[in-house]
């Protein structure tokens, strides 16, 4: 019963996503594509932080790694996405190993600082790369081309990125089910060891898979924007990704996707709200800092009032709808 309902819901969602280009403006499609791209990155970070419990502030660094790997390859003449995407994954995985090794010793805040250092090293390297190639503003990336196929325009990109995000979501859900070892490490390292989990190997694996996936997301970002520069990968971006998985609900794949949507759409929501109210002149001047402020405020509010994030709200609403008009499930639920 539950499964059938879920299947219907998923089917409805797929149809809605397929039909969106018929009704949505190109602005809406762009937002949806951005959300999908953010969802891939958020799912990867959720694997690392939500499941394996390894805090990372280096997510922007991993994204930059993929973007700049792609840029460097394209500049050198390797333009095929069949080369650039696997290369981005490989470089990302390698960086994951390097960053993962300190995680065997460092925990919590110290690990966060370690990943933060990685972020700055990667961005420094990327900046050097940028000046060496003599492109001070950044790289222009031509649209990806496979034989006669060129991925160009809002609608094809929308479909491509949503498909990638859907695939990432399915993989993430399956991983959560089959590799509970990561959650075991997050909850109790000693107990995880006692049931035979090789904690060191699992931590490194989490870093490798997470950073490889993030790096691919970075490469896709580069293609989608058509332009890569260091400025796009500020520390604030890393915070945004942490916000996505916290607001969405730590450890939940669905939460990561919801959080990605929330964080991507929030600035536009604030713009729209301010635009609708039509406040007197001068307010726009404060709009930019207000967005940052709203962000911090929302994160704090979520941590205080809804630690389970959007996915917690979703579960409550779903249960309320299912159980209505009752407040609780009957004691002996027929299953």
């Amino acid at each position: 019963m539950d499964t059938r309902l879920r299947r219907v819901a998923v089917a409805a969602l797929v149809v809605a996503l397929l039909l969106l280009p018929r009704f949505g403006s190109s602005f809406v499609l762009d937002l949806a594509a951005q959300t999908a791209l953010a969802a891939v990155g958020a799912l990867a970070l959720n694997l690392l932080t939500g499941l394996a419990g390894q805090i990372s502030l280096g997510h922007a660094g991993f994204l930059a790694t993929g973007a700049f790997t792609t840029a460097a390859l394209v500049e050198s003449g390797w333009r095929s996405p069949l080369v650039t995407l696997p290369a981005a994954a490989l470089v990302g995985a390698l960086l994951g190993v390097i960053v993962g090794i300190p995680s065997l010793r460092l925990k919590g805040l110290y690990l966060a600082l370690g990943t933060l250092a990685m972020h700055h090293v990667v961005l420094y390297g990327a900046g050097e790369l940028q000046t060496r190639w003599g492109v001070n503003t950044g790289y222009t990336i031509p649209p990806p081309r496979l034989g006669a196929l060129v991925l160009k325009g809002t609608v094809p990109w929308y479909y491509a990125l949503v498909a990638v995000a859907a695939a990432a979501l399915v993989l993430a859900v399956n991983l959560q089910r089959s590799r509970a070892g990561w959650m075991a490490i997050r909850d109790r390292e000693i107990a995880a060891e006692s049931v035979g989990i090789d904690v060191a190997r699992y931590k490194i694996l989490a870093f490798v898979w997470s950073s490889a996936a993030t790096s691919v997301a970075g490469a896709l970002f580069a293609y989608y924007r058509g332009f890569v520069s260091v400025e796009a990968f500020s520390f604030f971006l890393a915070i945004e990704y942490v916000a996505m998985i916290v607001i969405g609900g730590l450890g939940s794949a669905l939460g990561a996707v919801l959080g990605a949507g929330f964080v991507t759409l929030l600035p536009h929501g604030i713009d729209a709200a301010v635009g609708a109210v039509r406040l007197p002149g001068g307010v726009e001047y404060y709009l930019f800092p207000a967005k940052f402020g709203a962000f911090g405020l929302l994160m704090a509010l979520f941590l205080i009032f809804e630690p389970q994030g959007l996915v917690g709200i979703w579960r409550r609403v779903r249960n309320w709808v299912f159980l209505w008009p009752f407040r609780h499930r009957p004691l002996r639920a027929a299953s």
Partner: peptide
């Protein structure tokens, strides 16, 4: 799920197989 984790030593499928289920 706790007891299932005790089966870890007998699980052979890798991360990739787990992701594809």
């Amino acid at each position: 799920d706790n007891i299932l984790l005790g089966r870890h030593r007998h699980m052979r499928a890798g991360v990739a197989a787990g992701a594809l289920f």
